[in-house]
Design a protein around this nucleic acid. Structure first.
Lengths: 198, 198
DNA sequence: CTACATATTAGTACCTGGTTCTAAAATGAT
DNA sequence: ATCATTTTAGAACCAGGTACTAATATGTAG
């Protein structure tokens, strides 16, 4: 196996499992640990601990704002029952590889997640939505979604939330969401956010 | 300051900044590093590296389950410019772990993918949509989305597509999509579909 | 074949941020 | 004064590296 092949392999292994140590890599690639380390050096791959640190810091930046697993996009500001702001960067996995244009459902998912998150209720479910993709979004662009609660029917009623998503100053998406609260019997889209910031 | 007070302080500091080393803690709490370590031992707080590792692993579990791949749902039948059918099974990664209810944007994504796929054009972009989540979808349910093209404006015009999604006989989602064809200047949602079932 | 370059391996010293253990000193309570 | 608790000190050791030097392999051109 050539050096280049091995380095490609190495990239692939670490990509597939960032928690691998150099010692484990020697076993998988059948070269000495020094070679592994030279390879990492050439490829600019930091050591295991640094990789874990970066992942931890990255997730912490997100976690400190809100529960990331339930939500697409990072919610950076949230006034329950009032308004909220979320940021979502369009990456490789969100676009059509052919032209680098974001798939609409990611843009929708960000807005939808935010609309559900901003409603202060144990269970919030999107009942319906009226949406418009104003302009296409490209790879690398940062979508900033701003939600405003327009009306709040009492408990077990429906709330209306408007979401506008911008890239810079430009409006790229707008949506009007009707969100049911505690209406478990019907309508999809659950939501457990109940202000559980970390 | 009593031992208990100090340990409360220590908890608070680490909670506020999990990336703090024992050495930094000695500075803040004005006790020796051994005391810090005894405190961590008593409180069951792991060392810095272990804390970072846990955060990294936690975020990695989430990241790997978040964005699946290209088109959502398997397109099993497609008559371009006419109709199409796609099947999508709701799995673990598509639901809120708390209650097993599908996240709305996956149901939307299936319908959206299908609406875009059914339009026979190099570039198809969702311009707007009017959608309704009729009933929630649960873990394990198979969503069958059926798309019907309602109107087809000439090239560079807009097409209208209705999508109805069923679980068994039950309607769970309906959507009316306006899809632009070759209208690259405006509107989001690209379309590389050419029946690219994964 | 020789000479040279590149690639690989080996080995040592050193680093951070700890753990584990032993033991001495300080502090407090009775 | 005595005893228990708390705190501090110090040394040995560990993982998973970095940084550096140096020897050995391997390939390649003349």
């Amino acid at each position: 196996m050539s050096k280049k092949e091995r380095q490609q392999q190495l990239l692939h292994i670490i990509d597939g499992n960032p928690f691998v140590t150099d010692r484990e890599l020697t076993r998988q690639l059948k070269v000495s640990i020094q070679t592994i380390r030279l390879d990492r050096l050439e490829l600019g791959i930091p050591e295991l601990r640094e990789r874990m640190k970066q992942m931890a810091e990255h997730s912490y930046d997100q976690v400190r704002s809100l529960p990331p697993d339930e939500v697409v996009g990072d919610i950076v500001d949230l006034q329950l029952d009032r308004s909220g702001i979320s940021i979502f960067e369009i990456r490789e996995e969100h676009v059509f590889s052919r032209n680098g244009i974001a798939r609409g459902h990611y843009v929708f998912a960000q807005a939808n997640s935010l609309a559900v998150a901003v409603i202060n209720d144990e269970i919030a479910l999107t009942a319906s939505a009226d949406i418009r993709f104003v302009r296409m979004v490209r790879l690398g662009e940062k979508c900033i979604a701003k939600a405003q609660v327009r009306s709040l029917a009492g408990r077990n009623g429906k709330a209306e939330v408007d979401v506008f998503t911008y890239v810079g100053e430009e409006l790229v998406f707008q949506g009007h969401f009707v969100v049911y609260r505690s209406a478990i019997e019907e309508y999809s889209e659950g939501g457990n956010r109940s202000a559980d910031r970390h």
